[in-house]
Design a protein around this nucleic acid. Structure first.
Lengths: 214, 214
DNA sequence: GTCTATAGTTCGATAGAC
DNA sequence: GTCTATCGAACTATAGAC
């Protein structure tokens, strides 16, 4: 039974016909608009224009502007997660860090997505923003995953065990975010070489003297 | 002649009377409002309310909302610069890095100002934002100052000379920004210890083998 | 220097035709 | 599923009284 009557989740009516296509077009348009004007400054009319619809047309596929926001965030975040899973992330240690560099390299050719996330997380630091909880959970999740990968490096004896990996994970994520800001503000800035320097420093630091027993 | 007729710059009429005071009140109110709602989402009416004025009252002191934005950014940025100049920043090298840690510690008790900057830089990555140029120049200036401080460490033989200090400077600024984001999103995160770990790593890395001559 | 009143936009969301 | 039309609210900025 490859495709029953499909009690699916998409918008309405047609299972996966043209409906899903315009939904995707709206989310692409919203990515562009939010990247330039943020959530608060990005109007549904602008999104509709980019998707070649009218503003009520957009609200046929999403109940409200806030639903468009959350859908864009979840969709675009899934792409990053997929990217990580494609590398040998679960080996942990240095291998995992190298996978992270790959993610930075992919971001370096996806300016629109990066700018959207940077613009929205800037708004999202305020508890009054509808995406605040999303970002709180996103960073908690990313830190958790990164801590585990680093601890796998400790368990394998690859990294010294007297370092709090929670701090290292937080620093690595911070560097990624901060380098994105500088990259977006100045095209000449390049992210991957700078992030690679951090990884070099980090590997050197973590490979240092295993805590002399006794 | 301690205080002439004072051909000052403040708004209008009274030299430094109550006029300058309400101007300062407006900028304080704008800091709070922009921190919570950003520039686009923060209305002049909200700023006026916090400053205990009406909305046209605000526009008597500033020609437009955009002027309020630029005034807030310049005023609050000056505070940071003053903070740096109070430390032995110009000695360069490790001393300068320790001064940076002091700045992070001061930021850790100035959540409102930090949140305002994070929210506004998020909006400012877009070229369409009125503060875009301000942030481009701000980061260029900060990087320049930091590069010079690090190079002074190289000249003094404190740091190895085979490392591109432009990359290090960019990374240090990135870590500061990124740690601020995580701190704002999760009160449990603390910035200074994490930033101190980066500085430890950095000092270890930069103190390593001076490029073996020959 | 601060106010009331208002002009002129723009926005999100809804109603209803097709 | 997409449209036109419109409502009600919010915003920046200006005019003008006091």
């Amino acid at each position: 039974m490859p495709r029953p009557s499909a009690p699916s989740t998409p918008p309405r009516a047609s299972a996966t016909g043209r409906g899903a296509r315009t939904r995707a077009a709206i989310l692409e348009a919203a990515t562009r608009v939010f990247a330039v004007h943020g959530y608060r400054g990005g109007s549904l009319a602008a999104i509709a224009g980019e998707a070649e619809l009218t503003q009520p047309g957009v609200l046929h596929h999403f109940p409200s502007k806030e639903h468009v926001l959350m859908a864009v965030l979840q969709e675009r975040d899934r792409e990053n997660v997929k990217q990580l899973r494609s590398g040998p992330w679960h080996d942990g240690g240095v291998t995992a860090l190298r996978t992270l560099l790959g993610l930075v390299e992919d971001n370096a050719i996806a300016r629109e997505r990066v700018q959207m996330f940077t613009a929205l997380v800037g708004e999202g630091v305020s508890a009054a923003h509808p995406a605040h909880d999303f970002f709180v959970e996103r960073y908690a999740h990313l830190r958790y995953q990164l801590i585990r990968a680093l601890q796998r490096g400790q368990d394998a004896g690859e990294f010294r065990s007297d370092v709090d990996m929670a701090m290292i994970a937080s620093l690595v994520l911070a560097a990624m975010d901060g380098l994105q800001i500088q990259w977006l503000l100045d095209d000449e800035e390049t992210m991957p070489p700078r992030f690679a320097v951090l990884l070099d420093m980090l590997v050197t630091y973590l490979a240092a003297e295993p805590p002399a027993p006794g």
